[in-house]
Amino acid sequence: MAASTPVQKTEEEWRLVLSPEQFRILRHKGTELKGTGEYNKFYEEGVYKCAGCGTPLYKSDTKFDSGCGWPAFFEGFPGAINRSPDPDGRRIEITCAACDGHLGHVFKGEGFKTPTDERHCVNSVSVKFIPANSAALL
Rank of each mutant, 00 (worst) to 15 (best):
E21K: 14
E21W: 05
Q22F: 08
Q22W: 09
Q22Y: 12
F23K: 02
R24H: 14
R24G: 05
R24F: 05
L26C: 13
R27V: 06
R27L: 08
R27S: 08
G30E: 10
T31N: 12
L33A: 14
K34Q: 15
G35Q: 13
T36N: 09
T36Q: 10
T36G: 06
E38H: 08
E38L: 04
Y39W: 08
Y39A: 02
N40L: 09
K41N: 15
K41R: 15
F42E: 03
Y43F: 15
Y43K: 07
E44H: 15
E45Q: 14
E45R: 14
G46I: 06
G46P: 12
V47S: 11
K49V: 15
K49F: 10
A51Y: 00
A51H: 01
A51K: 00
G52T: 05
G52S: 10
G54P: 07
T55D: 08
T55R: 00
P56C: 01
P56M: 00
Y58E: 03
Y58G: 00
Y58F: 15
Y58I: 00
K59Q: 13
S60Y: 14
D61F: 07
D61H: 12
D61N: 13
D61A: 01
T62A: 06
T62S: 13
T62P: 14
F64C: 06
F64M: 09
F64R: 05
F64K: 05
D65R: 11
S66T: 04
S66K: 02
C68E: 09
C68M: 08
C68L: 10
C68A: 06
G69K: 08
G69F: 03
W70Y: 08
A72W: 04
A72Y: 05
A72L: 08
